[in-house]
Design a protein around this nucleic acid. Structure first.
Lengths: 250, 250
DNA sequence: CTACGTCAAGAGCACTGCTCACATTTGTTG
DNA sequence: CAACAAATGTGAGCAGTGCTCTTGACGTAG
């Protein structure tokens, strides 16, 4: 049983340091192969070749192919989450619409720059691979948490058009939403919470269509403008003021 | 010398009939393997085994693995398109909201019943496989055509809230939309057309999240109700009357 | 110095896509 | 009917994959 399963312990022996370095190299090489060849074509043997080692040696560091996929999954989720947090955090806290736009733009930008890794996160599941929830739910929920934080802050600030949802939330759905609300620590009402979930899936639907080429080869010559328009409409769906940020005086 | 060299003729010779039958068997077996093991794990050798023939024999009927994937892609697109057309056609032409809801429900129902084939259509692209546009764009655009037909009919009938789009459509996007409008033979204005595209991607975004398990294992205990709520909101995004269908007298 | 644990190497198994030479079946034609 | 040619099936083979196992080399702890 290897000790120090806890994160970020100072590697005492030089052996452990070399081992940690090798694992990081494997992740780096795997990330490159993933970006080039796609998720389902990720090959441990190819990684071993690039590492300059025989194929079976990588099994000393990574249990199997699934393990490497999980490492890359967490790695990609965190990179996306970092990009989103940085983009959102660059705007003032009260600029809810701007922060929402920044979140969506950051997701799209990262997805377009890393299509294969995006596909690993949000595409069809890799056959035979089931992501271990205990290791991926944390990094995997960073974007929706950031989105809900924006919407909740806007709601608390009274900057959300709360009244206009005529769509009733039936009891079983309300029960789900109540559970999610407490988990998020949010205070938005049911209608807005459900709309937030819709905006979330819609954002990734639009990004996925673009990244996966579902639009067709030459359907949209102006994808940036299309996405900006979609973001504006989605902001309205979430009840955000489509107009620009007005710093609250006082 | 009998000419009889035209396409899609009744297969005259029994040999051609047997050949067509074998190809259909291959597609059927491939569909089953696809549904069970996923797209990237589709194996020609396994299909050959199930067909009761040696592995190399299937290459007499199917050029390679890509060819079989293309056949299965078209097959799935058409099955989805048939399901959507049937669901939409079951409602009166003037029930625009009902038809929209039927379209969305049909897409979701088919996706949930055929998750692997849905993943082939709308998930991450299979590594190294590029769908031939000349064979897949036709079947692949049936859903968006059906959706736009509903929206266009509603617009022509004056049953769409056209005025309320404050989001400007910038010129490069307007050029794209103009091209798409003529290709569809539609007459909806730019704002509604762009919103239709957003509704389209949002629909598949919501379905993909559910099919691909992006929501998390036990986040929503009432996914039907969540989707129904999403559809209602999306109908509003498309400018459709959220209220029920009122048959026009006459 | 010895013993233990870690590591790399290589062979091997079962699987994949695909190609080729060869054998067999089948339909047509002289 | 016999002969021919096209279509079809066969099996070997190549290169690649994930993964396991045994063997030997090495560094470090006691």
């Amino acid at each position: 049983m290897p000790p120090a399963e806890s994160a970020a312990r100072k590697p005492s022996t030089p052996r452990e340091r070399a081992r940690a370095r090798t694992i990081e190299d494997i992740i780096r090489l795997g990330r490159e192969h993933l970006a080039v060849h796609g998720a389902a074509a990720l090959s441990l043997r190819a990684v071993a070749r690039d590492l300059g080692v025989v194929s079976s040696a990588v099994y000393r560091y990574v249990e199997n192919r699934e393990e490497l996929l999980t490492l890359l999954l967490v790695d990609a989720y965190n990179e996306l989450g970092d990009a989103v947090d940085a983009a959102v955090g660059a705007l003032p806290e009260q600029d809810f619409t701007g922060r929402f736009r920044a979140l969506g733009t950051a997701v799209r930008r990262w997805a377009l720059s890393e299509p294969a890794r995006y596909g690993l996160l949000f595409g069809s599941p890799v056959p035979g691979y089931q992501a271990p929830a205990e290791r991926t739910t944390g990094p995997g929920t960073r974007v929706i948490h950031a989105l809900m934080a924006i919407l909740d802050a806007a709601y608390r600030a009274g900057r959300v058009a709360a009244g206009g949802d005529p769509n009733a939330v039936v009891p079983p759905l309300a029960a789900d939403l109540e559970r999610i609300r407490t988990e998020l620590g949010a205070s938005v009402p049911d209608g807005l919470l459900a709309r937030g979930a819709l905006v979330w899936t819609s954002l990734f639907g639009a990004v996925s269509f673009e990244v996966f080429g579902q639009y067709g080869a030459d359907t949209f010559a102006a994808p940036d403008e299309l996405f900006a328009h979609h973001l504006a409409v989605l902001a309205g769906v979430a009840g955000l003021d489509p107009a620009n940020y007005q710093p609250s005086n006082g």
